[in-house]
Design a protein around this nucleic acid. Structure first.
Lengths: 90, 90
DNA sequence: GACATATTTAGACAATTGTATAAATATCTT
DNA sequence: AAGATATTTATACAATTGTCTAAATATGTC
Protein backbone atom coordinates (compact mmCIF):
# COMPACT_ATOMS: atom_id res chain seq x y z
CA UNK A 1 0.00 0.00 0.00
CA UNK A 2 1.62 3.20 -1.17
CA UNK A 3 2.60 5.86 1.27
CA UNK A 4 1.53 8.64 -1.09
CA UNK A 5 -2.02 7.34 -0.91
CA UNK A 6 -2.41 7.89 2.81
CA UNK A 7 -0.58 11.20 2.74
CA UNK A 8 -2.92 12.35 -0.01
CA UNK A 9 -5.94 11.44 2.08
CA UNK A 10 -4.58 13.26 5.13
CA UNK A 11 -5.62 16.72 3.94
CA UNK A 12 -9.26 17.83 4.39
CA UNK A 13 -9.27 19.92 1.22
CA UNK A 14 -8.22 16.90 -0.79
CA UNK A 15 -10.86 14.71 0.80
CA UNK A 16 -13.43 17.37 -0.03
CA UNK A 17 -12.23 17.35 -3.65
CA UNK A 18 -12.68 13.60 -3.77
CA UNK A 19 -16.21 13.92 -2.43
CA UNK A 20 -17.00 16.53 -5.06
CA UNK A 21 -15.80 14.11 -7.70
CA UNK A 22 -18.10 11.46 -6.29
CA UNK A 23 -21.07 13.46 -7.54
CA UNK A 24 -19.70 14.01 -11.01
CA UNK A 25 -16.54 14.59 -12.97
CA UNK A 26 -15.38 18.20 -12.91
CA UNK A 27 -12.80 20.45 -14.50
CA UNK A 28 -9.98 21.93 -12.44
CA UNK A 29 -11.70 25.31 -12.48
CA UNK A 30 -15.03 23.91 -11.31
CA UNK A 31 -13.24 22.23 -8.44
CA UNK A 32 -11.15 25.26 -7.56
CA UNK A 33 -14.10 27.63 -7.32
CA UNK A 34 -15.52 25.50 -4.49
CA UNK A 35 -12.64 26.53 -2.26
CA UNK A 36 -11.61 29.89 -0.80
CA UNK A 37 -7.95 29.37 -1.61
CA UNK A 38 -6.03 30.34 -4.75
CA UNK A 39 -6.55 28.29 -7.89
CA UNK A 40 -2.88 27.40 -7.89
CA UNK A 41 -3.23 25.92 -4.42
CA UNK A 42 -6.11 23.73 -5.49
CA UNK A 43 -4.13 22.74 -8.55
CA UNK A 44 -1.37 21.60 -6.26
CA UNK A 45 -3.82 19.49 -4.29
CA UNK A 46 -5.02 17.97 -7.54
CA UNK A 47 -1.48 17.04 -8.46
CA UNK A 48 -1.06 15.30 -5.10
CA UNK A 49 -4.26 13.34 -5.68
CA UNK A 50 -3.11 12.44 -9.15
CA UNK A 51 0.32 11.34 -7.94
CA UNK A 52 -1.48 9.03 -5.51
CA UNK A 53 -3.53 7.75 -8.41
CA UNK A 54 -6.73 8.71 -6.63
CA UNK A 55 -7.89 10.74 -9.62
CA UNK A 56 -7.35 10.65 -13.34
CA UNK A 57 -7.45 13.46 -15.85
CA UNK A 58 -8.51 14.01 -19.40
CA UNK A 59 -7.96 17.14 -21.41
CA UNK A 60 -11.05 18.63 -23.04
CA UNK A 61 -9.89 21.57 -25.06
CA UNK A 62 -8.76 24.26 -22.67
CA UNK A 63 -10.17 22.36 -19.74
CA UNK A 64 -8.83 19.44 -17.82
CA UNK A 65 -11.46 17.16 -16.47
CA UNK A 66 -10.88 15.23 -13.28
CA UNK A 67 -12.54 11.99 -12.30
CA UNK A 68 -12.24 9.57 -9.40
CA UNK A 69 -10.15 6.48 -9.82
CA UNK A 70 -12.50 4.16 -7.98
CA UNK A 71 -10.14 1.23 -8.35
CA UNK A 72 -7.78 2.74 -5.83
CA UNK A 73 -10.56 3.30 -3.34
CA UNK A 74 -11.44 -0.34 -3.54
CA UNK A 75 -7.82 -1.09 -2.74
CA UNK A 76 -8.03 1.15 0.30
CA UNK A 77 -11.14 -0.58 1.52
CA UNK A 78 -9.49 -3.92 0.97
CA UNK A 79 -6.43 -2.76 2.89
CA UNK A 80 -8.52 -1.94 5.94
CA UNK A 81 -10.77 -4.95 5.66
CA UNK A 82 -7.97 -7.48 5.44
CA UNK A 83 -5.71 -5.96 8.07
CA UNK A 84 -8.07 -4.45 10.55
CA UNK A 85 -11.57 -5.45 9.58
CA UNK A 86 -11.89 -8.32 12.00
CA UNK A 87 -15.62 -8.76 11.38
CA UNK A 88 -16.67 -10.37 8.14
CA UNK A 89 -19.09 -7.63 7.09
CA UNK A 90 -18.05 -4.45 8.85
CA UNK B 1 -14.95 11.75 9.93
CA UNK B 2 -12.24 13.26 12.08
CA UNK B 3 -9.22 14.88 10.54
CA UNK B 4 -6.90 13.45 13.19
CA UNK B 5 -7.80 9.96 11.99
CA UNK B 6 -6.44 10.44 8.48
CA UNK B 7 -3.43 12.37 9.68
CA UNK B 8 -2.65 9.54 12.07
CA UNK B 9 -2.80 7.02 9.24
CA UNK B 10 -0.53 9.11 7.02
CA UNK B 11 2.68 8.00 8.70
CA UNK B 12 4.20 4.62 7.79
CA UNK B 13 5.59 4.01 11.26
CA UNK B 14 2.15 4.44 12.73
CA UNK B 15 0.59 2.10 10.18
CA UNK B 16 3.25 -0.46 11.05
CA UNK B 17 2.38 -0.08 14.73
CA UNK B 18 -1.25 -0.74 13.93
CA UNK B 19 -0.31 -3.84 12.00
CA UNK B 20 1.77 -5.07 14.93
CA UNK B 21 -1.25 -4.60 17.16
CA UNK B 22 -3.31 -6.67 14.77
CA UNK B 23 -1.32 -9.71 15.78
CA UNK B 24 -1.63 -9.13 19.50
CA UNK B 25 -1.78 -6.43 22.14
CA UNK B 26 1.64 -5.12 23.13
CA UNK B 27 3.25 -2.83 25.65
CA UNK B 28 4.82 0.45 24.59
CA UNK B 29 8.27 -1.06 25.02
CA UNK B 30 7.49 -4.13 22.93
CA UNK B 31 6.27 -1.85 20.19
CA UNK B 32 9.18 0.55 20.43
CA UNK B 33 11.83 -2.16 20.13
CA UNK B 34 10.48 -3.04 16.67
CA UNK B 35 11.66 0.32 15.35
CA UNK B 36 15.10 1.81 14.90
CA UNK B 37 14.10 5.17 16.33
CA UNK B 38 14.22 6.40 19.91
CA UNK B 39 11.64 5.11 22.37
CA UNK B 40 10.39 8.63 22.90
CA UNK B 41 9.68 8.97 19.19
CA UNK B 42 7.62 5.81 19.16
CA UNK B 43 5.84 7.02 22.26
CA UNK B 44 4.93 10.16 20.37
CA UNK B 45 3.50 8.09 17.53
CA UNK B 46 1.49 6.12 20.04
CA UNK B 47 0.04 9.33 21.44
CA UNK B 48 -1.02 10.37 17.94
CA UNK B 49 -2.73 7.03 17.41
CA UNK B 50 -4.43 7.35 20.75
CA UNK B 51 -5.59 10.90 20.05
CA UNK B 52 -7.14 9.57 16.85
CA UNK B 53 -8.80 6.86 18.91
CA UNK B 54 -7.18 4.18 16.78
CA UNK B 55 -5.70 2.49 19.84
CA UNK B 56 -6.62 2.21 23.49
CA UNK B 57 -4.37 1.70 26.48
CA UNK B 58 -4.44 -0.05 29.78
CA UNK B 59 -1.86 0.21 32.50
CA UNK B 60 -0.43 -3.09 33.77
CA UNK B 61 1.92 -2.25 36.58
CA UNK B 62 4.91 -0.48 35.11
CA UNK B 63 3.78 -1.32 31.62
CA UNK B 64 1.19 0.26 29.42
CA UNK B 65 -0.49 -2.13 27.08
CA UNK B 66 -1.78 -0.97 23.72
CA UNK B 67 -4.57 -2.54 21.75
CA UNK B 68 -6.35 -1.74 18.50
CA UNK B 69 -9.66 0.02 18.64
CA UNK B 70 -11.31 -1.98 15.88
CA UNK B 71 -14.48 0.09 16.05
CA UNK B 72 -12.72 3.04 14.47
CA UNK B 73 -11.40 0.90 11.65
CA UNK B 74 -14.88 -0.17 10.84
CA UNK B 75 -15.81 3.49 10.66
CA UNK B 76 -12.97 4.08 8.22
CA UNK B 77 -14.12 1.24 6.03
CA UNK B 78 -17.65 2.54 6.15
CA UNK B 79 -16.42 6.02 5.20
CA UNK B 80 -14.79 4.71 2.05
CA UNK B 81 -17.55 2.30 1.19
CA UNK B 82 -20.34 4.86 1.42
CA UNK B 83 -18.55 7.73 -0.29
CA UNK B 84 -16.36 6.05 -2.81
CA UNK B 85 -17.24 2.39 -2.86
CA UNK B 86 -19.46 2.53 -5.91
CA UNK B 87 -19.72 -1.26 -6.23
CA UNK B 88 -21.92 -3.05 -3.70
CA UNK B 89 -19.26 -5.53 -2.62
CA UNK B 90 -15.90 -3.95 -3.34
C1' DG C 1 13.17 6.38 50.95
C1' DA C 2 16.47 5.19 47.29
C1' DC C 3 17.15 3.04 43.04
C1' DA C 4 15.80 0.58 38.70
C1' DT C 5 12.57 0.02 34.93
C1' DA C 6 8.78 1.68 31.82
C1' DT C 7 6.83 5.35 29.65
C1' DT C 8 5.62 10.06 28.68
C1' DT C 9 6.44 15.03 28.28
C1' DA C 10 9.18 19.13 27.08
C1' DG C 11 12.12 21.61 24.12
C1' DA C 12 14.88 21.98 19.99
C1' DC C 13 15.64 21.38 15.12
C1' DA C 14 15.49 19.74 10.35
C1' DA C 15 12.24 18.11 6.88
C1' DT C 16 7.75 18.25 4.87
C1' DT C 17 3.59 20.50 3.70
C1' DG C 18 -0.04 23.98 2.52
C1' DT C 19 -0.70 28.29 0.78
C1' DA C 20 0.33 32.52 -1.86
C1' DT C 21 1.99 35.27 -5.88
C1' DA C 22 4.13 35.40 -10.22
C1' DA C 23 5.53 33.24 -14.36
C1' DA C 24 4.94 29.59 -17.76
C1' DT C 25 2.30 26.48 -20.81
C1' DA C 26 -1.72 25.04 -23.45
C1' DT C 27 -5.88 25.81 -25.98
C1' DC C 28 -9.29 28.67 -28.24
C1' DT C 29 -10.92 32.76 -30.82
C1' DT C 30 -10.37 36.41 -33.71
C1' DA D 1 0.01 36.00 -34.46
C1' DA D 2 -2.23 38.36 -30.68
C1' DG D 3 -5.16 38.18 -26.87
C1' DA D 4 -8.31 35.65 -23.68
C1' DT D 5 -9.19 31.72 -20.78
C1' DA D 6 -7.72 27.44 -18.25
C1' DT D 7 -4.37 25.25 -15.81
C1' DT D 8 0.13 24.14 -14.10
C1' DT D 9 4.82 25.09 -12.50
C1' DA D 10 8.27 27.79 -9.89
C1' DT D 11 9.55 30.10 -5.86
C1' DA D 12 9.01 31.68 -1.24
C1' DC D 13 7.42 31.33 3.41
C1' DA D 14 4.86 30.13 7.52
C1' DA D 15 2.90 26.11 9.83
C1' DT D 16 3.08 21.33 10.86
C1' DT D 17 5.46 17.14 11.62
C1' DG D 18 8.97 13.55 12.85
C1' DT D 19 12.87 12.81 15.30
C1' DC D 20 16.24 13.59 18.90
C1' DT D 21 18.04 14.34 23.78
C1' DA D 22 17.02 15.44 28.35
C1' DA D 23 13.89 15.78 32.03
C1' DA D 24 9.70 14.28 34.31
C1' DT D 25 6.27 10.88 35.99
C1' DA D 26 4.72 6.34 37.43
C1' DT D 27 5.39 1.78 39.18
C1' DG D 28 8.04 -1.93 41.36
C1' DT D 29 11.90 -3.65 44.34
C1' DC D 30 15.17 -3.45 47.85
Amino acid sequence: MDDSLFRALADPTRRKILELLTEKDRTAGEIAEQFPMAFASVSHHLSVLKAADLVATEREGQFIRYRLNTTVFQEVVRYFMTRFGGEKDA
